[in-house]
Deep mutational scan, measured.
Amino acid sequence: RELEAFAERFKQRRIKLGVTQADVGAALANLKIPGVGSLSQSTICRFESLTLSHNNMIALKPVLQAWLEEAE
């Protein structure tokens, strides 16, 4: 499924970029996305391991996609 594929791609790109899960969480606050502050390292970890609820995964995907586009 698309969500699982994105989570895997996100993790691979993050590692290639040399960015930690905690760095991603902190950097999200800098994107100034309305309603989104920083996220914890454990939230990023749970996203990558697909252990968040489906609704949370869907909500976080565009936020993490925005970070990925900014980071690349």
Score class of each variant (00 low, 15 high):
21 Q>P: 06
64 L>E: 01
15 I>W: 03
38 S>Y: 11
2 E>L: 04
19 V>S: 09
27 A>Y: 11
68 L>I: 11
38 S>A: 04
12 Q>I: 08
26 A>S: 13
37 G>V: 12
30 N>H: 12
19 V>T: 07
57 M>T: 08
61 K>S: 05
46 R>F: 03
25 G>K: 05
37 G>C: 02
35 G>F: 06
49 S>H: 12
46 R>C: 04
40 S>W: 04
31 L>G: 02
10 F>S: 10
67 W>K: 00
20 T>K: 08
71 A>Y: 11
1 R>S: 10
1 R>G: 13
49 S>A: 14
54 H>N: 12
49 S>F: 03
3 L>Q: 07
53 S>H: 08
3 L>S: 04
5 A>L: 14
19 V>P: 01
34 P>M: 09
40 S>H: 13
25 G>L: 08
30 N>S: 08
18 G>L: 01
14 R>L: 01
46 R>Q: 13
1 R>T: 09
23 D>S: 12
63 V>M: 11
3 L>Y: 07
21 Q>I: 12
47 F>S: 01
61 K>H: 10
4 E>V: 12
3 L>H: 05
17 L>Y: 03
38 S>H: 13
48 E>K: 06
58 I>Y: 09
16 K>H: 11
49 S>N: 13
42 S>P: 04
46 R>V: 00
11 K>N: 01
46 R>G: 15
58 I>K: 11
18 G>C: 02
15 I>V: 10
67 W>H: 01
8 E>W: 07
70 E>V: 05
24 V>F: 01
25 G>T: 11
71 A>F: 09
21 Q>K: 05
12 Q>A: 13
72 E>I: 05
7 A>G: 02
72 E>C: 08
33 I>M: 05
60 L>K: 01
45 C>P: 06
33 I>N: 04
72 E>L: 04
34 P>H: 09
7 A>R: 02
62 P>I: 01
19 V>I: 14
63 V>D: 02
16 K>F: 05
32 K>H: 10
8 E>R: 12
44 I>K: 15
34 P>K: 03
63 V>F: 08
64 L>F: 04
4 E>M: 13
51 T>Q: 11
49 S>W: 00
1 R>E: 10
56 N>G: 12
47 F>W: 03
27 A>T: 15
15 I>P: 00
21 Q>R: 05
20 T>E: 08
16 K>R: 13
47 F>L: 03
19 V>N: 08
27 A>F: 05
19 V>F: 14
38 S>R: 12
25 G>V: 14
6 F>S: 05
14 R>S: 00
13 R>D: 06
26 A>W: 08
18 G>T: 00
49 S>I: 02
35 G>S: 07
71 A>R: 13
68 L>F: 02
30 N>W: 13
31 L>W: 13
33 I>S: 01
38 S>F: 14
12 Q>H: 05
1 R>A: 05
43 T>P: 01
43 T>C: 05
58 I>L: 15
14 R>M: 00
26 A>G: 08
48 E>R: 01
37 G>T: 13
46 R>T: 02
36 V>P: 04
31 L>R: 06
16 K>D: 09
12 Q>K: 10
71 A>C: 07
5 A>W: 04
26 A>C: 11
37 G>S: 13
68 L>E: 03
11 K>H: 10
42 S>N: 15
58 I>T: 12
19 V>G: 04
64 L>Y: 05
71 A>S: 10
5 A>T: 13
60 L>F: 05
36 V>M: 14
43 T>D: 05
31 L>D: 13
43 T>H: 05
51 T>F: 02
42 S>Y: 11
47 F>C: 00
3 L>V: 15
7 A>H: 01
46 R>D: 15
28 L>V: 09
70 E>K: 12
69 E>W: 06
35 G>C: 03
50 L>R: 14
50 L>W: 01
57 M>G: 02
67 W>S: 02
45 C>F: 13
23 D>N: 10
22 A>P: 03
64 L>I: 04
65 Q>Y: 05
58 I>P: 00
24 V>M: 05
7 A>T: 06
58 I>N: 12
43 T>F: 04
31 L>Q: 07
9 R>K: 14
24 V>A: 09
29 A>K: 14
40 S>T: 07
9 R>I: 08
56 N>T: 02
36 V>R: 05
12 Q>W: 05
29 A>L: 07
47 F>N: 00
27 A>E: 09
14 R>I: 02
16 K>Y: 07
32 K>M: 12
64 L>W: 01
60 L>R: 01
22 A>L: 06
53 S>A: 14
64 L>N: 01
62 P>E: 06
60 L>A: 05
2 E>M: 03
8 E>K: 15
60 L>G: 02
13 R>W: 05
56 N>D: 04
17 L>E: 01
46 R>K: 14
71 A>N: 12
62 P>H: 10
32 K>V: 13
47 F>Y: 06
51 T>V: 10
60 L>T: 05
42 S>K: 14
17 L>K: 03
72 E>H: 04
37 G>E: 14
28 L>I: 11
20 T>R: 06
63 V>S: 08
33 I>Y: 10
37 G>Y: 14
23 D>K: 09
22 A>E: 12
51 T>R: 14
28 L>S: 02
45 C>K: 15
5 A>M: 15
67 W>M: 03
59 A>S: 03
34 P>A: 14
1 R>F: 09
43 T>R: 02
3 L>I: 15
5 A>S: 13
10 F>W: 05
21 Q>N: 15
4 E>D: 11
35 G>K: 05
35 G>P: 05
31 L>S: 10
53 S>T: 07
45 C>T: 14
62 P>M: 03
47 F>G: 00
31 L>Y: 07
38 S>K: 14
7 A>F: 02
27 A>S: 07
18 G>Q: 07
51 T>M: 15
14 R>F: 00
43 T>L: 13
32 K>P: 08
14 R>W: 00
69 E>K: 12
31 L>V: 15
34 P>D: 10
25 G>C: 15
25 G>R: 07
15 I>D: 07
70 E>R: 12
2 E>K: 09
69 E>G: 07
53 S>E: 11
27 A>C: 06
42 S>L: 12
14 R>A: 00
36 V>I: 15
41 Q>S: 15
29 A>Y: 05
12 Q>D: 14
2 E>H: 07
13 R>S: 15
23 D>I: 01
11 K>P: 01
27 A>R: 04
2 E>D: 15
65 Q>D: 11
43 T>V: 12
7 A>V: 14
15 I>L: 10
26 A>E: 12
21 Q>L: 07
12 Q>V: 09
63 V>K: 04
32 K>W: 08
8 E>M: 13
29 A>E: 13
70 E>S: 12
56 N>I: 08
22 A>H: 10
14 R>Q: 03
56 N>W: 15
54 H>K: 14
70 E>A: 10
63 V>W: 13
24 V>I: 09
20 T>D: 02
47 F>H: 00
26 A>T: 10
61 K>Q: 07
16 K>P: 00
56 N>P: 02
38 S>L: 12
51 T>W: 04
26 A>R: 13
17 L>Q: 00
32 K>G: 08
20 T>S: 10
19 V>D: 08
2 E>N: 07
51 T>Y: 04
72 E>P: 03
39 L>G: 00
67 W>L: 03
20 T>I: 02
11 K>L: 03
29 A>C: 14
16 K>S: 13
18 G>E: 03
71 A>Q: 07
14 R>K: 01
20 T>A: 07
19 V>K: 15
42 S>M: 10
70 E>Y: 06
15 I>G: 04
51 T>L: 09
51 T>P: 00
46 R>S: 14
72 E>D: 10
18 G>D: 03
21 Q>H: 15
11 K>Y: 03
56 N>S: 15
8 E>P: 01
7 A>P: 02
50 L>Q: 15
14 R>N: 00
8 E>S: 12
47 F>K: 01
49 S>M: 09
68 L>W: 02
69 E>N: 11
8 E>Y: 06
